[in-house]
Every structure is written in C-alpha cells, then in structure tokens.
Design a protein around this nucleic acid. Structure first.
Ligand SMILES: [Zn+2]
Length: 129
DNA sequence: GCTGCCGGGCC
DNA sequence: GGCCCGGCAGC
C-alpha cells in the first residue's frame, strides 16, 4: 500500500501531512499568515513537495532520474514568483529557523564563547541559517 | 518569556 | 572600525 506524503519545505519546518489540503492549510496558517487580498493565487503550493512513499523500500531502478516532478522547483518559476511579487523574504515576512545559535547553545552565562556577531546581537556567523 | 537580529548608538 | 543595547518579530 503506497501513500503520498506532503512535506513542508519552509525553512526548518519539515512538517508532513497526508493530504494536499492539510499541508496547504498548515502552510497558510503556520507560515504564510491568515490570508492576503490579491496575494499570489496558490502561494502555498510553492512551500511543499508531494512525493509518493512505498511501503518497504524504494525500487532499485537506476535507469531514470526522477522525471516528471511538479511544476514547482523550477528556477524560472521561482524567479518569476519572487521577482514580480516580493512574497516572503522581505522585511516584514521573516521566517525563523529552529536550529540553535551561539546564544542558546552556550547560554547567557558563557557569552565569551559566542561568535562575535552573536555577542553584538547581529546575525550569527558560526551556525548557518 | 525567550531567541535572533536590525537599526542605531557610543567610542 | 569595534562594541553594545533597544526594540521587535517569531517562537
Ligand atoms: Zn553565533
């Protein structure tokens, strides 16, 4: 019995659901916000991937790379979406990664172990984002 | 309440 | 330039 998994590709999320509507609801509620007037038609669809999952293991077919993936993940499509309409990633819609930075790793009581930027309350340079 | 960090201050 | 903090957004 194979099923389909919808995985959220928002930074540091990775939430999985089993239906298309549920992942879109997750993305809209958790990441994108309530809703916007005149927003891109289906903006949610850019933030998740749909993949089929086999029960035991993936088949050993090495003939083809995965062809026919959804229209997402196309560089042109992405540039078009980001360029014409500064959707997220503009000052105002800032995501938040869940990986720890110097402050949380070492704690306030060991500030001398933080990287310089963290000491100055700037963007961390030791742990990527 | 805490974390990450932009903006802005002081030297 | 180095150094620090207010204040805010995102949890
Ligand atoms: Zn750091």
């Amino acid at each position: 019995m194979n099923s389909v998994v919808f995985e959220c590709t928002w930074r540091g999320c990775g939430h999985n659901t089993n239906t298309c509507s549920s992942i879109e609801a997750h993305i809209r509620n958790t990441h994108l916000g309530p809703k916007k007037e005149g927003d891109s038609d289906h903006e949610e669809e850019f933030y998740y991937t749909e993949r089929e999952v086999m029960a035991p293991a993936p088949p050993p077919t090495l003939s083809h790379r995965d062809m026919c993936r959804p229209p997402h993940e196309d560089p042109e499509y992405q540039r078009q979406l980001v360029g014409s309409y500064s959707s997220p990633s503009s000052p105002g819609r800032r995501p938040r990664s869940d990986n720890k930075k110097c402050r949380k790793v070492y704690g306030m009581d060991q500030r001398d172990l933080w990287c310089t930027q963290c000491k100055w309350k700037k963007a961390c340079t030791r742990f990527g984002d």
